[in-house]
Design a binder for these strands. Structure first.
Lengths: 219, 219, 219, 219
DNA sequence: AATGAATGAGGGTTCATTCAT
DNA sequence: CATGAATGAACCCTCATTCAT
């Protein structure tokens, strides 16, 4: 873990509280994180002010700085936690699943389920993709890269299994586009839920790459 | 056209200059617009300051306000012009084209060509989707709606022509996701050009919806 | 009291400090208010800049905004405090005084004494009469109306006691004119003090309305 | 006339056009002056912007500067013209009038008539009393001083005629206060007209100074 | 563990004014 | 005679951040 992720104060704290699964510090931190996620979602990272966060979370402006050393670190923690969780969940779900197609369907389902259950967090992840700088940026990018790599490897499996030929990069990034774009349009009351959405997107995407790859689409 | 789009000064100007294709005012305005697009692209709308624009465009801070009455109106003009252009180009290209599939391929090609030729403008359009408020927002939304409607009608044609059944809404929005997401990853030096990209995305998308819709994907 | 007069922060502060006569916040606030009064007096509300106030009060520009949420609210607090004080002082002094004439003399004396002791504040009150808007304006107007009403009732008493007939409105407003105008000419070193001024203005005004009202002035 | 009042351009212009009673320049100037008076009245000198004047008068911003060399000179011209007119009118009316009392009544009537016929101008005169600086200020002050002197001499006449004793300065400034204050309260639809107002104020003031001066008011 | 008080830097916008045309 | 274009200075206000307590 890079230097960016651990402040002296926080680490000291964690050391002293290592015995408990969740210290009061971590609990309070989590609450504020949740509020901040909502605010960043609604106003954007640049558009949200620390005063907004203070108001929403009910903690004083100065109080926030005890938990987060800077606004940027706050965004970093949100993005890192969100991304880490989604990757971990994915890995668990993929264990022991056999066919490449099935594994890709799980990938998509996992992404969309998490997306719709944590819309705010995922919007902050997608929309504030390049808001972080230097150390913070690189750490998030590392996780993102890992996630991307997993998807690439799933598609490569599929190509090997079925003897297909297409640009993995374009396919993967198209898939991410389909999935990540939903924060711009999905309304829980109106639109399909994660299962249904995952099924339909999986169908489109899988049929797409599998047929297109055999040479152009034919009747 | 709503009141938001025409200031007294601009309209007066345009009236007097109706015969000429571009007055000096409009030319200067266009130049600043171009610079502003780049800056908004790099820093985001909220993150970019009018002082940044002043520096980049080489015009004094106060001078900018002679052309744009506010920062918000500046973003509005960029978005409106970009969107209007892409819609007009699309309409021209669609004229006289017969098959639904071909028309969808043109839609995608048109979108990606414009996207890659005007990456900055298109990122500003995609990424600053809800930065505008009230009158400005509604006018841009109207154009967006029209563009969306065109795509919906193309897909409905396809469904009719081929007797397919799938959710047009999800298909259209997935397509937009695939296409709009490219601002997050496309590097001109590394990635395929618009033609190639359009071909591949069209293949994936069309094969996807056409095969998936016949009932699940089958071998 | 309208919403305009109490910010969340100020009210919270006052609640906690209800037992003490003046918190440090209130003290600091009072100091700044005093400086601001001087500056508004010298340069006028519009003509004075927050930078002027910052310079005069020795506090940073941003620091001022911790105490006053806006320049307008600053003026509002000055006007409200000044007006409230003068009305309260008047009420105390009027208690138990019998004859209408005596009561009017007290009214005039009270006004002029306060005026000359707080010249700057009273000029700001008189001269910036319509600088406030909406909620701020209406709250000050309410106090002003009360003050005006008191004067009207005193004159009505006089008319009843002595069986006089004249336009109370014109008389009252003439009296206010005489009194308030002094901010344009009174020089402490040169001109009479409040007692003497009050005596002379009272004589002129009272003799004026009492004789004039009996039918035109006669020898 | 001081240097402040004549710019090279204006004087040259007037020289060339000396034969006509009103040049086109002067006519146009007068129109703008009238509009500016209204704007200064509504928004105050500091609060009114040259853009406001441009909008109201229908002339371009730059065009205004052809007629007025600066915003301050604009206020100066308004104040000077207003004050000069009122003094000239007064002198004409006073000619041949005998008794001091009558002359004072004429003074008051003249002031109030002009005030109510030119409310905006008179408010600008009264309210923006110390907005001008240096040369501009001193020239207006000179006229003001003359006007004040006339009033003083009228009151001194009265004192001599009737053997009264009171402070002329306080009496005169009280009278000005009564009269000038009306811009803060007079509504043409509701309140008495100039004649009636002049009668009542004259009664109050004259009865006041004449009776008060004989020693305190007595029954 | 948490806050009130304070700040330097910078935000978007408007100001009175000029000058080539 | 009048304007469109342009500007430096200043406007009010908010920003992320700090530090004594």
């Amino acid at each position: 873990m890079s230097a960016a992720s651990t402040s002296p104060r926080a680490s000291e704290h964690r050391r002293r509280a290592a015995r408990l699964p969740a210290t009061r510090f971590d609990k309070r931190l989590g609450e504020i994180l949740a509020h901040a996620t909502d605010v960043f979602c609604k106003k954007g990272y640049e558009g949200a002010s620390m005063r907004d966060l203070s108001r929403t979370s009910g903690m004083s402006l100065a109080g926030l700085y005890y938990y987060f050393q800077s606004k940027e670190r706050l965004l970093f923690l949100i993005q890192k936690h969100t991304f880490t969780t989604i990757v971990e969940q994915l890995k668990t779900r993929l264990e022991g699943v056999g066919s490449a197609e099935q594994r890709i369907r799980i990938f998509i389902l996992n992404h969309l389920e998490y997306f719709l259950s944590n819309q705010a967090a995922m919007k902050v992840l997608s929309h504030e993709d390049d808001a972080l700088k230097n150390g913070f940026a690189s750490e998030v990018k590392a996780i993102k890269r890992e996630y991307y790599r997993i998807c690439v490897s799933l598609l490569d499996e599929l190509k090997r299994e079925r003897g297909l030929q297409f640009s993995t990069r374009i396919a993967v990034l198209s898939l991410f586009g389909m999935m990540n774009w939903i924060y711009t349009w999905h309304h829980p009351r109106v639109d399909a839920d994660a299962d249904e959405l995952a099924r339909q997107m999986s169908d489109i995407f899988l049929c797409g790459v599998m047929n297109a790859a055999r040479g152009r689409h034919r009747e």
